[in-house]
Write a protein that binds this DNA or RNA. Sequence first.
DNA 1: TCTGGGGTCCTAGGACCC
DNA 2: TCTGGGGTCCTAGGACCC
Length: 419
Amino acid sequence: MKIFALVDCNNFYASCERVFDPSLKKRPIVVLSNNDGCIVARSNEAKTLGIPMGVPYFEHEKVIQKHDVAVFSSNYQLYGDMSQRVMDSLRLFAPDMEVYSIDEAFLRLDHLQPRNLYEYCLTIRRKVMQWTGIPVSIGIGPSKVLAKVANRVAKKRTDSGVFDIGDNKTRDEILKTLDVEKLWGIAWRSADRLGRLGIRRASELRDANPYIIRKHLSVVGERILRELRGQSCIDLEDIQPRKNIMSSKSFGNLLTEKKPIEEALANYAARACEKLRQQNSRAQAVYVFVQTNEFRETDKQYNNSITCSLTIPTSDTRIIIEAAKSCLDRIYKQGYRYKKVGVMLLDLIPASLEQKHLFAESDQRPGDHLMDTVDRINEDHGPDTLFFGAEGVNREWKMRCGLRSPRYTTQWDELLTVN
DNA sequence: TCTGGGGTCCTAGGACCC
DNA sequence: TCTGGGGTCCTAGGACCC
C-alpha cells in the first residue's frame, strides 16, 4: 500500500521573518503581496485578530496599527532560499518526494511500518525545526487527498504537529464533519454543484456513485472521490519543465507613456528568459498583454493582448525583448493609465530537441555563450549586476516594497548582525 | 491614494482530414 | 433535393492550486 505524508510549513512567510528576528515571536505578523497590495500571509496571532487572507492591505490598516502587527513586504529571495533549505532537509528523510509548492512537499513513506510512521514524522518535524527554524505540520494518509485532510488536523494539534489518518474509524469521523469545499481540488463552484446533489460533507462525496460524480465534476471529481476511499489515484509527480513561463507585475504607479512601460516589459522579459534558460528550454512564441486599473471606475478601461511566434526557437534575451517590444507596439494605445504589463513565453521546447540549422557550423547558437555568461555573473554577484539597456535605469515603474526585511541569506551586505 | 503573481489540467467545440 | 462516419488537432474557457 502507498503511504503519503504532506509536509506543510506553518504560516511560511511569517515564520521566515521570525527565524531572523526573535522579537517577532509572539507578535502578530502579516506579509504583503507585490506592491504591498494584498495580505498574503499571516501568523496565527494575526489570524486570531480576524485579518483575512488575500484582502487589500489598506482596508485593514487600522486594525493592524491598533494591535501593533508587524508588516512586511514580500521578500521572495529570503522565502525562496528558506524553502530550499526545508526541502533539502526533507529529502534526507524521504528521497521519494515531490516539492508541491514553496511551502509544501509530499513524501512517500511506503517503506516504513505503519506503527513507526508517527514517530518518524515527529523526528522529521523536530529536525526541520532544528536545521532551518521553520515549524512544519505533517499529515499522513494512503492518498494525497487524505494526507491533505490529515494535515488540516495536524495543524490543530499544536503539541505534536503530526496526524495519521490511517485508522478507519477516526478517518470516518473526520470526513463526516469536513465540508467538501475544504477538500484539495474542490472549490466553491464544485461545492455548489455537489450541494445541488445533496452532497455537503467529505464522507458523502466518498460514498457517492463515482459515475454520477464523473458526470458532474469530470474525472477530476471522480479521482477525489476515490482518493477519499483510500484508493490512490494521484501519484507523486516528477519535476517537469514548465510549459509556459510568465512574468508580469503591477507598476508602482500608473503609467501613461510608452517608454517606461516598454522598459518594464523588457525587464519582465529578461526575468522570464532567465527562468527559460534555467530549465534548458527555448520559446517558440511570445504573448504580451497590457491592463489598466479595473478598480478605478472613473478611468477609461483598456485591456489587450497579442501573441506572436518567433522565427526560430530561442532563449536569447535580446531577441525576446525585441519580439515583446514589437508586440507592445501593436497593442499600446495612448490616452490610458496603465497598471500592468506582462509577457508569457509559449510553446517551450527542450533546447536539445530543436531542429538544427542545415548549414550551421556549430551546435551552439552565437547567443548561447553570451547568455550563459550573463547568467553566471548575475548568479555570482547578485541579480541586476548585468542587465539589458532596454530595461532602462530610472525604473519609475518599480513596485513598492518599502517594508521588506533584509535578504539575510542571499545578500552579503544584508547579513544578520548581532550586537 | 492603496486592490498579487504564476502555474496546471480538463472539456467542449470548431476546423480539418480521408 | 438528397448529404456518412470516423478521426485528429487546436483553442478558448473553466476550474483549481499555492
